[in-house]
Every structure is written in C-alpha cells, then in structure tokens.
Design a binder for these strands. Structure first.
Lengths: 237, 237
DNA sequence: GCGGGAATTTAAGCCAAAATTAAGCCCGCG
DNA sequence: CGCGGGCTTAATTTTGGCTTAAATTCCCGC
C-alpha cells in the first residue's frame, strides 16, 4: 500500500443501498472500489479472496451477527475494523469496541464522517508501510529523494547534497521527458540564475557519479544535446 | 512507554468535575494520573512541560476553542487526540475529525467508552514503540524520552533539559529521516520562531555531548548539510 | 578528415552553513 | 538579593560543497 486510498476495503452490510452509497463515496474520495458482501458467508469468502486491509461491518446480518463475524475474521488475520449499527445502545457500543474494533458508528451516519474515521484508522494502522513511499528506482539502485539517499544492494548508501537532490527531484518529476537547462537552473537557483549553466554540468557529473555504474557513459541521466537532460524511464535504455 | 497504561495523558476541559471523574477512571484502569488543564494557556504549558502521549480536548474552553488549540499543539509535535464536546452538530464532528483528531465523543459520554476508544488509538499509534520497550536505543546508550534520561552501562545517567528532550523527541519521531531546521524549530518554539536557527546549533551540540561518544564526530545525530538533521537508524553507521 | 560549438572532466579557490566556544541573560529558588 | 541552571546571543573557526575556470573530449556539419 503506497497511499491510503490504495487500501482494499471490505464492506459488509445486508442493505444493498448502503453498500452502493458508501461504495460510491469511497470512489469519489479516490479509493479503490471496495469489495461488498451482504452476509457473513459472503464476507468470509471475500475476506479469503480479497485480503482486505480494512473491514466495515454491519452488526445485523441475515445469517449471523457482525460481532461474531469480526472475531472470526480477526482470528484469521488482524485487520482494523469499524462497526456500523442501527443499535445505539451503550452496551452494544461498549461490546463492539471491547472486542477490539477501532470504531463504532451508529446509523444513520454521515458518509463523510465514515470516510474521515476510516482514513484516520488506516493512517495509524499502516503508518510504517506508508512512510517509505516514493523511492526512485534506477536499475539496481534506489533513490529516496526525501532522505537524499542512494542505496544499492551490497553497497554503502551514498548521500545526495541539497543541490543534487533538487536537481534530481526536478528530473524525476519529468521522468522520461527532456528537461531544459533553463528549467533545471530555475528549479535549483530560482529566477535570477545567470552564469550557472556551467555549474549545472558539474552537478550533473556528481549525480552521475552517484547514480551510474559508469559515470562517463550514463544509462539513466542522459544528455540531450542542445536541449537539456532527461532521466530514462523504467525500462533499461 | 512500555505499556499502554504508561501513556502520559493531557486532559483539557474547563469543568473540574469532569477532570476528576475521567482522572479517577483512568487511574482505576491502571493509567498514570493524567495532567489536567482548564484553559488553552494551561494546556500549552502542560504540553511543553509534560510531553504528553495523548490529548483529550474539550472543544469549549474559556480562553479559546479546542480546535485551534489542537492545531497549534499538533504543529509542535504530532500527538494522537480525541475531542470531547457538548456540541453534537454534524458539522462540528466533521470539522474536528477533519483537523486530524482520532476521535470525537459527545457529552454526555460513558467513561468506559472513552477508555476503550483511547486504548485503541494508543495501541495503534504507539505500536512500534510498545514493541521495543519504549526506550530509544543509540548504540550502547539508551534514552528514555519520558524521563528525559540517558543511560549507558557503567555510567552515571545524564538528564536532558526540556529543550533537548523536545528536540530529540522530534528527531526520534522521524528516526532515519531528515528533519528540516524549520520543523525542528517549530516543534520546540512553536510558530513564532525567528532568529532561533542559531540557538538550534547549540542545543544540537548539547545533545551530541550527551548522546555521542565523540560529539565532534557524531554517529547518531547527523547533520545533513543544507537540509537539516537526522537521527541514524538502528544499524550502526 | 577538419573545425567549431557543445558537453565533460578535473582541480582549485571561495563562500556560506554549521560547529564551537564563551559570555550574558532570565527565571525560579533558597 | 545572590545563586545556579539552562537558554540565548554573539563572535570565531571550521568544513563541505558550490562555483569558477581551464583543459579535454565528443559530436556533428562541412
């Protein structure tokens, strides 16, 4: 999971209208279409098939109750979960939360609130996983722009300087496309660049020494004569 | 933090009865006595002094509103939080959750439910930390951020000052990643930092004198020139 | 092949960021 | 009121990396 919205969500409720409503709300918010199930049996199947990252469970289901279902699924694999229920009795809420659910929302509810609460739980539950997003893959090497680090298997990590990182950032933003000298200079030194064209060469050289196996015959950071530079796309050039 | 119950909780509400009630419920459940504050001003002070792990905020406060307070504290350091409010309007709940709070409970509420919800949030938020006993391991040294103590085998424990602890807290929260000067300054001095960039150096130096074997050649608290500082990860550099 | 502009490469000097050190200030406390 | 710890300020030194410059190689049209 790279973004919160990539989470696979399993929605269990016997009301098709609600499933549709929440499903479309999720999609509007940029999520993947959720799996939906209208019974415990269907939920069990979907759980096995789809390996969801989050459960939204109604408490009342035609062939059982959400609490039991929750416990059963939780035993198979721990997944964050939120209960929906028409029953607002204190005892129900306490029971549901006591089982280990992350939240308990009573119907009717605002879909917006559901989304917000889900988002929080997901963020907390998958924080570690989400944290290391956005690494730039360059052959065997991997560049974390956030940390200004170049790592390769069986090799001491190299650090990028502030300028090098800014440069690479710009190139990565336009990966696969030409970036003109002007655009590069501007993104590093701001508007008032002049006479930096030469300095740019040097930084490019330094980058190549950190990114390329053979800096003098670059494979990733390519020069486009007369125009600028470009970062080669995924496929090895 | 070694156990959930060791979490330091900051309780902000203008009603002394509620503070007492929740406070004793927490203690009955095995928690530490929480810090209590009855105003934004008091909360700000307590936040700086006690470095809480969790915030319970009333929305209505005599000298401001809980939402604004929350945002302000959150900017200094990210702490899980739960809103209490007498206002049950949908808009309020959505607003509170939208700000990034982990939960929103309307008064009157069951203390038991509050406790359950708190426990869940704490468990999710501090999972990683709980797993490894709550101390920051830095080579032979071990830092307990809660107690502001640095211990090493065969050595008198050193104490961290409030500023040093705040700084290290922020760095530890992002262990292995770069933390910019701005982020550091903000987490220590709040929004209106200016001219503190220099002071930061000095505190870093002090931290290094307490954390490093050779403060002038740091191994753990590294400077990333032009970007910020970072705390090295587990693997010895 | 030749010539000229474009890009690379290398090394040296320079500059600003960060480290270091010490002195002064402020606040709580005896 | 003086003391002490810790925070801030200020002045100085150090260092890393940015820029400059000059030599070299590369590419392309002629």
């Amino acid at each position: 999971m790279r973004r919160i919205q990539d989470a696979r969500i399993l929605l269990v409720d016997d009301n098709p209208d609600l499933l549709a409503l929440v499903g479309s709300a999720l999609q509007n918010a940029g999520y993947q279409p959720p799996c939906a199930a209208q019974s415990c049996a269907a939920a069990r199947r979907a759980f096995a098939a789809a390996a969801p990252d989050f459960l939204v469970l109604d408490v009342n289901l035609p062939d059982g109750d959400g609490f039991t279902l929750f416990q059963e699924l939780q035993a198979r694999r721990e997944v964050p979960a939120l209960f929906l229920s028409a029953r607002d009795a204190d005892a129900d809420r306490l029971f549901g939360l006591g089982l280990g659910a992350d939240d308990y929302l009573t119907k009717p509810f605002l879909t917006q609130e559901l989304l917000l609460r889900m988002e929080h739980i997901l963020r907390r539950a998958y924080r570690a996983e989400l944290a290391q997003g956005g690494a730039l893959a360059l052959g065997r090497r991997s560049v974390s722009l956030g940390d200004a680090l170049v790592t390769a298997p069986g090799m001491e990590p190299l650090t990028l300087t502030a300028t090098e990182r800014a440069l690479l950032q710009k190139l990565a933003d336009n990966r696969g496309h030409i970036v003109t000298f002007d655009a590069l200079c501007e993104s590093v030194w701001g508007d008032g660049y002049y006479g930096y064209e030469n300095a740019l060469n040097v930084h490019i050289r330094h980058l190549r020494e950190k990114l390329e196996d053979d800096p003098s015959h670059p494979v990733w950071l390519l020069t486009v004569r007369g125009l600028g530079y470009k970062l080669a796309g995924e496929a090895r050039a």
